[in-house]
């Protein structure tokens, strides 16, 4: 259990997280207050009905708001990368980090149920990475990310990539404070994935269609896949990439640069206005 805020993290472990630091997120802010909607007749029963009307995710959303505030003060573009296991997320990420590392600050938060293998792959590129192991947990939540941030400074005025647990269902509902969810779908999966897992595609602003170098060997219908994605999320941006051959990756780098620029512009406006 955390000695500062009393949070029990269950099976979650964050490497480098020793819990001897202050938290940037507040744990007891702004909760709704249920009003007594009805009271049973006196003497009949001591029980009463409380009308609560609280969003189940309100706790997570408070942490996410605190994270978002931190990101904005530090001028960080934060992306929550989501996909099924095996979509090529980590390969795509290591290629991206290698390409951009001399150009802008970057850091990575890696979410997996077990092992630090992915964080090691990231660190091999020279970029700082913090691994969160969720144990049996199937997604990252904003509270875990808040803790991971305490040991992470490298992405100020740069890009923080949060590689979520490989899962197309659960991470959809949990806001981490990111600017955008980016969903990665590989062409070795079915083109109907956006219809099968609509919540994730609805939550994403950008879809990276990965492993396009394999298209000649597959029956994957790219146009149909994009149509399905846009049926779920009209206006979702789609980029076709191959993290192995590098094809299409320049458009992704350009999207990253432009998104980071808009974060930096908001930061300088905030500084000028202060």
């Amino acid at each position: 259990m955390c000695t500062t805020c009393g949070c029990g993290e269950g099976e979650t472990t964050i490497d480098g997280h020793s819990h001897d630091h202050s938290h940037m997120h507040h744990h007891h802010a702004g909760h709704g207050h249920g009003a007594i909607a009805a009271t049973h007749a006196p003497g009949m029963s001591k029980s009463r009905i409380l009308r609560i009307e609280q969003d189940i995710l309100s706790k997570n959303n408070e942490y996410a708001a605190a994270n978002r505030n931190h990101f904005s003060r530090h001028g960080m573009l934060v992306l929550n990368l989501v996909s099924s296991p095996g979509s090529g997320k980590t390969t795509l990420l290591t290629r991206t980090l290698t390409q951009l590392k001399d150009e802008l600050p970057q850091a990575v938060i890696e979410g997996d149920q077990q092992t630090v293998l992915d964080a090691e792959r990231i660190r091999a590129t020279g970029v700082e990475a913090i691994q969160i192991n969720t144990g049996k947990g199937c997604h990252l939540d904003a509270h875990m990310v808040g803790h991971a941030l305490e040991n992470l400074n490298a992405a100020d005025e740069g890009i923080l990539f949060i590689e979520n647990v490989g899962n197309l269902v659960c991470p959809a509902a949990f806001d981490l404070g990111e600017a955008h969810k980016v969903v990665i779908l590989s062409v070795t999966e079915g083109e109907d994935k956006p219809l099968k897992y609509p919540d994730m595609f609805y939550a994403a602003d950008l879809m990276l269609l990965n492993k396009t170098d394999l298209l000649p060997h597959l029956t994957f219908d790219v146009e149909k896949c994009i149509e399905f994605a846009r049926r779920v999320k009209p206006g979702i941006k789609v980029l076709q990439v191959s993290a192995i051959s590098g094809e299409g990756m320049d458009a992704w780098y350009e999207w990253l640069r432009a998104s980071r620029q808009s974060v930096l512009s908001s930061l300088s406006e905030a500084v000028a206005g202060a």
């Binding site: 249920g34 001591k46 029980s47 009463r48 009905i49 409380l50 609560i52 609280q54 509902a173 049926r231």
Partner: peptide, 19 residues
């Protein structure tokens, strides 16, 4: 399509019976 969803996205604690 697309349609504007107006209900069905709820995840809420509504009421409690307490002692």
């Amino acid at each position: 399509y697309p349609l504007d969803i107006i209900a069905g996205e709820e995840m809420r604690i509504k009421e409690l019976e307490v002692q």
